[in-house]
Structures are given as structure tokens and as C-alpha cells.
């Protein structure tokens, strides 16, 4: 199944440099409609106001973390099926389990490579 690369993608990270890196990697994967947020609260507002097909979020942000954003997304009737990839340096088993239980679509540990990002995006969008 072909992916719709014209969809809006929201990337969420409190490090501007990381936002820039992920945006550029997405551009290489031909995702050109990319918006940014620097924490969960800003991301949630954008998600509720817009029309996105994918969220790629960091975990460790202030004031709202990526996990808390994920829970809000899954509790929202309009957003609950939105593909959500966590991309984070949090690599403990308890983090992965908590994210999975909260409904994460996939989980990428930092530092990551472009191939891993491509593979996970493809996986979650094909199964969305």
C-alpha cells in the first residue's frame, strides 16, 4: 500500500536542532508538509486545530511530556486513531511499556538513523 506523503506531519521536540534534523530527514523521505511544536501542550493545541496524519514526538519536554501528549491524543475522540511515533532517548523497558500501554504506534530510541525513521513511519502508516 502506498503512503500518502502529502499528509500533514507534526514533529514535537524541545530541542530546535532536533526538530530541524527530523524535518530534513522527513523532507528526504518526501514528506514536505511538516509542522513543529516544542512541547506536548503546544502540540495538542495544533493537533486539535489542524488536520494531521502523523505525530512524531519526543518524550522529555516541559511542561507536557510526550507520554502525556500521547494519552491526551488517545483520549480525544477525533484524534484517538492518529499514528503516533515516540522518538526519544528514554530507553528503559518501563518507558517502552508505558508508551505501548498508552497506545503508541511505534518507538524509536535516540540516537537513531534515517533508515529506522523510514521503516517505522512506513510501518505505522501502512497499518493505520
Amino acid at each position: 500500500m502506498a503512503m500518502d506523503k502529502s499528509m500533514n506531519v507534526l514533529i514535537v521536540d524541545d530541542y530546535k536542532t532536533m526538530l530541524r534534523i527530523i524535518r530534513n530527514l522527513l523532507k528526504q523521505l518526501e514528506f514536505d508538509n511538516v509542522e513543529e511544536a516544542t512541547d506536548g501542550a503546544e502540540a495538542l493545541a495544533k493537533l486539535r486545530a489542524g488536520n494531521f496524519g502523523l505525530v512524531i514526538s519526543d518524550w522529555n519536554m516541559e511542561p507536557m511530556t510526550g507520554l502525556d501528549l500521547l494519552k491526551e491524543v488517545r483520549a480525544d475522540a477525533r484524534l484517538k486513531h492518529l499514528p503516533f511515533i515516540m522518538i526519544t532517548a528514554e530507553s528503559k523497558t518501563e518507558n517502552v511499556v508505558a508508551a505501548k500501554q498508552a497506545g503508541v504506534s511505534n518507538y524509536i530510541v535516540k540516537p537513531f538513523n534515517a533508515e529506522t525513521l523510514r521503516e517505522k513511519i512506513e510501518k505505522v502508516l501502512v497499518h493505520a
Partner: peptide
């Protein structure tokens, strides 16, 4: 929150 409690960094 659970997200904050589990945010330990790399």
C-alpha cells in the same frame, strides 16, 4: 504525571 515521573533522560 506518569510521563514526568518516567522522564529520566538518556
Amino acid at each position: 504525571t506518569e510521563g514526568r515521573a518516567l522522564a529520566n533522560g538518556p
